[in-house]
């Protein structure tokens, strides 16, 4: 078994045993889609394409937020506990450690985002009386664009959590939550426009997601062991 999968499997196991993180993720995966589905249904009326567009619009921030939730367990907890120092002494490069942890975040974050998407689709379809599950662009969005964005978010947040001190990480957390609230406001404006999922928008989102993933990899490559060790509380 490769060290990448050893690290990723451990992070997934730890996430599944963290009741606090799981409860937060599940509450968010159900509460947020149901609340937004009401808005989507009201804005779209009986237009299935508009409902698809609304669902596609909310799954990205949900995925990114799930990435943040699971990163707090995989990266920040390890640093707060100081156990990262022992891991840094293992015969594994820092880059590989970051990749393994990010992968371990992506899997549960993606699964809970799919749960959120399923709840959204069910709630919006019921309220708008317009079934949307068969929209191929929405399926493409969920299968390709969303995981790339989650991976980019996990990579960026993870690298930042490794590099920053605890106080900076607290500020990052507040900034992330406020940014998320701001994003929801922006999305509600998009949703109320009633536009559907377009191939062009998906292509742009995919390109941006891949660019963010590359940026995350670049930033992670700049983080040093010394930086991590000196910011352990």
């Amino acid at each position: 078994m490769s060290t990448l999968s050893v690290i990723a499997r451990r992070e997934i196991r730890l996430a599944l045993r963290n009741r606090g993180v799981l409860i937060t993720a599940f509450v968010f995966a159900i509460w947020f889609p149901v609340m937004t589905a009401v808005g989507i249904a009201a804005a779209a009326g009986g237009d299935a394409a508009a409902v698809s567009g609304g669902i596609a619009a909310i799954t990205l921030p949900v995925g990114v937020f799930m990435g943040y939730i699971f990163c707090s367990d995989a990266f920040l907890r390890e640093k707060r506990d100081g156990t990262i120092e022992t891991l840094l002494c293992a015969p594994v490069s820092l880059q590989r450690l970051w990749e393994g942890k990010a992968l371990g975040v992506v899997v549960p974050a993606y699964l809970t985002t799919l749960l959120a998407a399923a709840v959204s689709i069910g709630a919006a379809s019921a309220l708008a009386e317009a079934p949307v599950a068969a929209d191929p662009l929405l399926l493409l969005h969920l299968a390709a664009v969303v995981p790339v964005w989650i991976a980019a978010a996990a990579g960026l947040i993870g690298a930042a959590q490794l590099a920053l001190g605890m106080r900076e990480n607290q500020i990052l957390g507040f900034a992330f939550i406020f940014g998320f609230i701001f994003l929801i406001g922006g999305l509600q404006a998009v949703i109320s426009g009633g536009s559907g999922v377009s191939a062009t928008a998906e292509a742009v989102l995919m390109a941006v997601g891949l660019a963010l993933l590359a940026l995350a990899r670049f930033i992670a490559g700049k983080v040093t062991k010394e930086r991590i060790v000196r910011t352990i509380p």
């Binding site: 050893v6 451990r10 730890l14 045993r17 022992t86 002494c89 594994v92």
Partner: peptide, 27 residues
């Protein structure tokens, strides 16, 4: 090389055997 820091390098939510299995995989 082996190392033991003050925090023991162990995950509290994993069992003793799983903690050792994880490091066995890394090494």
């Amino acid at each position: 090389v082996g190392v033991l820091f003050d925090n023991n390098g162990l995950a509290d939510r994993m069992s003793a055997a799983d903690n050792l299995a994880y490091y066995a995989g890394l090494y």
